[in-house]
């Protein structure tokens, strides 16, 4: 239990998707103009990461990893399908996003209309594929650990995009040098926020 909570906190603050690994920067920069839309996108990312990482964990554990096919037949002990992981993960992500979209539309039309266009766009958000690839690389031991890593990364991304959106809403009132306006200043602010998040580095949980 302790371990699972540690992974959760660590993936929010220490290994933050945006500030430590720059994942999901495209939508982070493009959709962070107002707080409302960024909250919507952030929630959608938490949601999708919380689903795709555990599903990809099962896929990796039972099909892809070296020797994972033993449950089918002992003769498959040295089969290594891990080179297929990119294509299978992206397929799972694309179909999960589609599935999530349909489920949300059916059961919660309000949430669906507030997420709007963002839900399908998430399929090509690098934070999602990155979550699955990090899960594979770090070799989490159980489904619960993988799930808490997925949710934690999502929450970290959520915090980052809501934070930058709030700052960008305020920065409209300040006098930024003309060539830095828009994209340039957003990069530099993200860098400064990253420095702030670095204060979590080295925390041992």
């Amino acid at each position: 239990m302790q371990e699972i909570f540690n992974i959760f906190v660590k993936s929010i603050f220490v290994d933050n998707m945006v500030f430590a690994y720059f994942l999901g920067m495209c939508s982070y920069l493009a959709v962070s103009k107002t707080v409302n839309t960024s909250v919507g996108l952030g929630l959608a990312v938490v949601f999708v990461l919380g689903i795709t990482v555990p599903v990809d964990y099962l896929l990796n554990d039972y099909i892809l990893k070296p020797g994972a096919l033993v449950w089918l037949d002992a003769g498959f002990a040295d089969v290594d399908l891990s080179f297929l992981s990119f294509i299978l993960f992206i397929a799972i992500i694309a179909s999960m996003v589609q599935l999530v979209e349909m489920v949300v539309e059916k059961f919660s039309p309000a949430l669906y209309s507030s997420l709007g266009i963002f839900l399908p766009l998430i399929a090509v958000n690098c934070a999602i594929l990155g979550g699955s690839l990090f899960m594979q690389e770090r070799e989490y031991q159980s489904l619960a650990q993988a799930t808490s890593f997925g949710l934690g990364s999502g929450v970290g991304w959520f915090l980052a995009i809501v934070g930058i959106a709030a700052i960008r809403e305020k920065i409209r009132y300040s006098n930024v040098p003309a060539p830095l306006r828009g994209l340039g200043i957003t990069f530099i602010i993200t860098g400064l926020m990253g420095i702030a998040f670095m204060s979590f580095l080295g925390i041992k949980l």
Partner: peptide
Amino acid sequence: ILPPMALIIVGIIIWIQRS
């Protein structure tokens, strides 16, 4: 070497290019 500097350097490149 730390991650945030990459962002700041790209920010500066953008600044130079746009000015």
